[in-house]
Simulated assay, not measured.
Amino acid sequence: MKKVFVVGVVGIPACYGGFETLVENLVEKSASDVTYTVFCSEHDYDVQLSEHKGAKLLYLPFKANGMQSILYDTYALIKSLFYRPDVVLILGVSGCVFLPIFKLFSRSKVIVNIDGLEWRRAKWGRFARAFLKLSEKLAVAFSDTVISDNQAIYDHVLSCYKRHSEVIAYGGDHAMVRAVSGFHDSYALALCRIEPENNVELILKAFADLDIPLKFIGNWHNSEFGRRLKIEYSNVANIELIEPVYDPEELFAYRDQCRFYVHGHSAGGTNPSLVEMMFFAKPIFAFNCNFNRYSTDGKAMYFDSPDSLKTIILSWEKTGDAAAEEIGRAMNDIAVQRYTWAKVTQAYQKLYQ
């Protein structure tokens, strides 16, 4: 039996984001010789289960995000010393400043998924960026195995730290709660956390000058940035700003019925929302960065400004349904080849051995 302890997530059942969905699927598809223990934040669970899908759950008295994530991850690593698991799987680098000390007292194999170069995100101040960059450096230096979720992250680790890492992305097939209809409505769809590096304002500016309907799903009320955009664009006739959608069936319907998908992320490696959408075989317009180009194998359509987004949409519209089907088919082929949870789980389990 391989005992794997998971550090760095809010917890399971999944209720937050990409890492939580990853752990949910690792646990659900676990091999018979692998057991999981997952650290969870007691702040996010009114009902605290002792186990979930065969994984043992241990609750910690800190929040898993923000500044408390450092304490949260560090405390999880300290508790792991006493349990002596075979593998400690760390998702994100917040607590990796403790890794040099942890390695002095533990024989556990340490695997770190360094996430998407978190220190580059615009939301962090100068001190936070410096801390996260230091944490990343220590994560790479003191882990036994580094996981990059995108080839661009691999290139960064190799260039900056002269170390090879394992490229394992995320699965997206959990989004397919039923068969796609094969039909579409007239609207474009965008879906993300409302943060500057997701180029939300760029997308809204472009569609404000188009006649094409846009449904944009996001957490508009969680920041001053989001609230300002909500006020500014709520009265634009062809733009509908929708609050976060968590119900899988409802989210499936939005994706299934959209005409095409606009993906503005410019940071974060392989974005779960992108690989989930690729399974729907719809044309994808993605922000032009190496993360997105690697994820879509260079076969999507790419923009870097409101004008370029408008130009490629209008140009694409003239090419007809055949071009749309070709791009959508390419997205689906890549997703099936790379982004199923069965393949992701198998890759992680191989690293435990």
Rank of each mutant, 00 (worst) to 15 (best):
V4G: 01
V6C: 08
I12K: 09
P13N: 08
Y16F: 12
F19Q: 05
T21A: 07
V23Y: 01
V27T: 12
S30V: 03
S30P: 05
S32M: 04
D33H: 15
V34C: 02
Y36C: 00
C40R: 06
D46H: 07
D46Y: 05
Q48R: 15
L49D: 11
E51L: 07
K56W: 03
L57Q: 03
P61W: 14
A64E: 05
G66L: 12
S69N: 13
I70T: 12
D73N: 14
A76I: 09
A76E: 07
S80T: 15
S80E: 09
L81C: 10
L81H: 07
F82V: 02
P85T: 09
D86T: 08
L89T: 04
L89R: 05
I90Y: 08
L91E: 13
V93N: 11
C96K: 07
C96T: 15
L99P: 04
L99D: 03
L104F: 07
F105R: 06
K109C: 01
V110Y: 07
G116W: 01
R120E: 14
R121W: 05
A122D: 12
W124H: 13
A128D: 13
A130T: 12
K133Q: 14
E136G: 04
L138Y: 12
V140R: 07
A141R: 15
A141Q: 14
S143H: 06
D144I: 01
D144R: 11
V146R: 03
I153P: 10
V157Q: 02
K162R: 14
H164Q: 14
V167T: 15
A169V: 03
H174C: 01
A179H: 00
V180F: 00
S181W: 10
D185Y: 03
S186N: 12
A188W: 10
A190H: 03
A190Q: 06
L191F: 14
I194Y: 01
I194M: 05
V200E: 05
E201A: 10
E201N: 13
L210E: 11
F216D: 08
G218M: 08
E224I: 11
R228T: 14
R228F: 04
S234I: 03
V236A: 05
V236H: 03
A237K: 15
P244R: 07
P248C: 02
P248K: 06
E250F: 00
L251C: 01
F252Q: 00
A253R: 00
Y254P: 00
C258H: 08
C258D: 11
C258E: 10
H265Q: 13
A267W: 00
T270Q: 05
N271F: 07
E276F: 00
M277V: 13
P283K: 04
P283W: 10
I284S: 04
F285H: 04
N288T: 02
F291A: 02
N292R: 05
T296K: 05
D297K: 14
K299M: 13
A300Q: 09
F303D: 11
K310A: 04
I313W: 03
S315D: 15
W316D: 07
E317G: 08
G320L: 07
A323Y: 06
E326K: 13
I327M: 14
I327K: 10
G328Q: 09
R329I: 04
A330K: 15
A335Y: 12
Q349V: 03
L351T: 08
